[in-house]
Design a protein around this nucleic acid. Structure first.
Length: 586
RNA sequence: CGGGAUGUAGCGCAGCUUGGUAGCGCGCCACGUUCGGGACGUGGAGGCCGGGGGUUCAAGUCCCCCCAUCCCGACCA
């Protein structure tokens, strides 16, 4: 039993000034967490109970699926990460440190290397596989900008699993087992998730899905198709490529004076004024916008890259980085333009781009820009554009890239219906890693024929600490937190309203009775605290059931309030323990 | 890294324009009143005004330089 009179807790009446999102505000106000450093939080008694409940659910579901728990250090040697290239690929996001002998160490951002090496240590036969092991571990990533409290910290807890199989069919089966276990886990946590196609990011690998919790403060954007059910992170959306067209009867391209049109908007306006089309007005989508960026590779080298895309779309930096990973994208600065005189800012065209162009800069096209389509685009001279430049006839690029932003109402890649777009939190990520790590670290087993085979791996994560905040985010209301029973710090919050001795005696009897009945309880036994304060605190703290012991006692009843629905009912004091125990059992 | 803002008591803030020795609310301590929707009175404790330098008889306030934090853009569970 938790007694409010002695509980290590101080609730705050006002929102903390550094908190922006509801979960952050409420978790701090309710005394669940305290900030220790930017993106690093301490768990207080109530917060730690929620955290451990979530951890317990995750652990039970992993165990039930037959995965075995291990536990690695968070402090790791550099060597394995050197072998896979991630010591450099991870860049500044890696917390690095040295011991007294000046040996390099890191705080693990993720543990593929360690798992791979551990299995290599112990196993060497196909008979040992399949294997799936997991840990629940604190991870460290020196994020450029931690934000939103627990939702995105530099220290966080992740459940990460890894599967090991001898062949692709085995990997697929392991992947499906994890997928099923994740569906169960999130259902038990009361966390709504949408399974979306995803990219595999810095981890490498192929098939990949994310479990996204729809949430307005989420940092991911995903699309869903209302008619066929297709769902994907925008980073992973494949655009619908129109068929190539014949350019036999297209008119030749013409270079035209288009003064003071450095942006798509100004260009479209001028096209309609000076070069009106017979059939319809010019639109931004008729123009080909060429955006130049710098790729910063992990080894420190810089490479300019040009992306050509329809003028009605921006470059989506997330999508672009997903494509060029592990390189990161930086802006093409004024000095970069100075170094590339062939590029006329505002009037860049295919003539200056591509490895065969005058600048030699690698040039990739949005897949919509297909062979045989005609575009208005920069003429590589200030104040001039070229109209009717045809792909394949007048210019060619070095390839295609999926870097254009996805727009709501874009066609579904699978069925063509209009897509819907939503924000969400990435709660889980499952993917088929393949043989990248096993190859780099030499994880081999002998097959039936005595031949060495490289093991193929899957990697699966759940954001355990993030789930605390995500559940708070999903369930809170204007009065405070509102925990699902499975993860709440306690199931019942007893308020002793008023200072009459009979009230305290009865409330104490009920609290002790619940304790004996194994129903977890918080008892607000504070003396001299007004009923109003206790009610506000009970609502802020968010236990699923609130029991008010007070003036109803005169009629032999106590008040039971469901925190989520707000429904109240009076229950005779003699039945209250059985009543609550039944609620607890569901 | 770019852009914006803020650092004054445990928390939330005022004071800075116009320099003059530190204030409000919440919380905390004591006593009394109150006691079912964040009560009230009286009396208290608590501050290197982010750090350093400068101007000045005098700096929380003016000037310069740092540092830190938060928010908006590029990473990920």
């Amino acid at each position: 039993m938790l007694r409010m009179s002695t509980l290590f807790l101080r609730t705050l009446r006002e929102d903390p000034v550094d908190a922006e999102v509801p979960s952050h505000k409420l978790l701090v106000r309710g005394g669940y967490v305290r900030r220790a450093a930017p993106g690093i939080y301490s768990w207080l008694p109530l917060g730690y109970k929620v955290y451990r409940n979530i951890e317990r659910v995750v652990r039970e579901e992993m165990d039930a699926a037959g995965f075995q728990e291990v536990h690695f250090p968070a402090l790791l040697p550099k060597d394995p990460y050197d072998k896979t290239g991630r010591w450099t690929d991870y860049g500044d996001d890696l917390f690095r440190l040295q011991d007294r002998k000046k040996n390099d160490y890191l705080l693990g951002p993720t543990h593929e290397e360690m798992f791979t090496l551990l299995v290599k240590d112990l196993y060497s036969s196909y008979k040992d596989l399949p294997l799936a092991i997991y840990q629940i571990q604190t991870k460290y990533r020196d994020e450029p900008r931690p934000r939103a409290g627990i939702l995105r910290g530099r220290e966080f807890v992740m459940k990460d699993s890894y599967s090991f199989d001898v062949d692709d069919a085995g990997l697929e089966a392991s992947y499906q087992r994890h997928r099923a276990a994740y569906i169960k886990t999130f259902a038990r946590l009361g966390l709504e998730t949408v399974i979306v196609s995803a990219t595999s990011g810095a981890m490498g690998g192929s098939a990949s899905e994310e479990f996204i919790n729809p949430c307005p403060v989420g940092e991911d954007t995903f699309i869903q198709c209302p008619s066929c059910g297709y769902a994907a992170n925008v980073e992973a959306v494949k655009v619908v490529v129109p068929p190539a067209q014949s350019h036999a009867d297209l008119p030749p391209a013409s270079v035209e004076d288009t003064p003071k049109t450095p942006t798509i908007d100004t260009l479209v306006t001028m096209l309609n004024e000076r070069f009106p089309r017979a059939d319809r007005p010019w639109k931004a989508a008729d123009t080909l916008k060429n955006v130049v960026v710098n790729l910063l590779h992990p080894d420190g080298t810089k490479e300019p890259l040009a992306v050509g895309l329809p003028g009605n779309r921006e470059v989506d930096m997330k999508r672009l980085e997903a494509q060029v990973s592990p390189a990161v994208v930086e802006a093409f600065e004024v000095e970069d333009f100075a170094k590339n005189p062939a590029l006329k800012k505002g009037y860049i065209g295919p003539g200056s781009l591509g490895t065969k162009g005058t600048s030699g800069i690698r040039y990739l096209l949005d897949p919509r820009v297909v062979e045989g389509t005609a575009w208005v685009t920069g003429a590589d001279e200030y104040n001039k554009h070229v109209i009717g430049l045809v792909v394949g006839r007048d210019f060619a690029a070095d390839g295609t890239i999926e870097a254009a932003e996805v727009l709501a109402d874009d066609p579904c890649p699978r069925c063509g219906s209009n897509l819907t777009m939503e924000k969400g939190l990435e709660m889980g990520h499952i993917f088929q890693l393949g043989r990248k790590y096993a190859e780099a670290l030499g994880l081999l087993v002998l097959d039936q024929n005595g031949k060495q085979q490289v093991v193929t791996m899957g990697s699966y994560g759940i954001g355990v600490s993030r789930a605390v905040a995500a559940i708070a985010e999903q369930t809170h209301d204007q009065f405070g937190l509102c925990w699902p029973r499975e993860v709440a710090p306690a199931e019942v919050h007893i308020v002793a309203a008023g200072n009459a001795e009979t009230v305290f005696n009865e409330a104490t009897r009920i609290a002790e009775g619940l304790d004996a009945a194994k129903v977890s309880v918080i008892f607000d036994d504070r003396i001299g605290v007004s009923a109003g304060v206790k009610f506000k605190d009970a609502e802020l703290l968010g236990m699923p059931t609130i029991v008010v012991v007070g003036k109803g006692l005169a009629d032999g009843v106590v008040e039971v309030k469901d925190r989520k629905s707000g429904e109240k009912s009076n229950v005779p004091v003699g039945e209250i323990i059985d009543y609550l125990a039944a609620l607890s059992r569901g």
